[in-house]
């Protein structure tokens, strides 16, 4: 099967690039080479954060008109974080469709544009893990916990990390 669409070609290219030279702590690739629109990735928790030592699986789903539209990223199992919805879907500006923000909150240059890449998304997610943005919270409970009771927030995450590692 030869890829026909721009999306498939570009995904292949990004796959190759990531396979050859991935940034530290990031592994990503299509679940099956027959469907390049579903990716699986493993993100390492950034050091000096409660997520340290954790390895978090997530799935990337690409629209057919990628790279014109952004993919969506979902942690599976969900991760406790102010910018991750309870179902695991990540909410950061780079994953929002390009153009003006209807809420006038994000600047257009922060949002998705076809010149971004999967690598950049995953790097942004890594830095999001390190530095939550409570101003545009997706998970209100996590936001509150993060703001009001950081110790409890940290310990809950550490517990999750330990459990996910099977310890």
């Amino acid at each position: 099967m030869a890829p026909r669409s721009t999306a498939q070609k570009r995904l292949l290219k990004e796959y190759q690039q990531l396979a050859r030279d991935a940034p530290p702590g990031i592994v990503a690739g299509p679940v099956s080479e027959d469907d390049l629109f579903k990716w699986e990735c493993l993100l390492e928790g950034p050091p000096d954060t409660p997520y340290e030592n954790g390895v978090f699986p997530a799935t990337l789903s690409f629209p057919k008109d990628y790279p014109l539209s952004p993919p969506s990223l979902k942690f599976d199992p969900p991760l406790l974080h102010p910018n991750i919805y309870a179902d695991g879907t990540v909410c950061i500006s780079i994953l929002h469709p390009s153009g003006e923000d209807p809420n006038q909150y994000e600047r257009p240059e922060e949002r998705w544009s076809p010149v971004q890449s999967i690598e950049k998304i995953l790097l942004s997610v890594m830095s999001m893990l390190a530095e939550p943005n409570p101003e545009s919270g997706a998970n209100i409970d996590a936001c509150k916990l993060w703001r009001d009771n950081r110790a409890e927030y940290n310990s809950q995450i550490k517990k999750h990390v330990r459990e996910s590692l099977g310890l």
Binding site: M1, A2, P3, Q16, Q17, A19, R20, D21, E33
Partner: peptide, 21 residues
């Protein structure tokens, strides 16, 4: 590193990193 899974797609996947080696 050089395992090339792209062969089966029947297209050229060229990449700047080709030059790295």
């Amino acid at each position: 590193m050089s395992k090339n899974p792209f062969d089966r797609f029947g297209v050229d996947v060229t990449d700047p990193t080709d030059w790295a080696s």
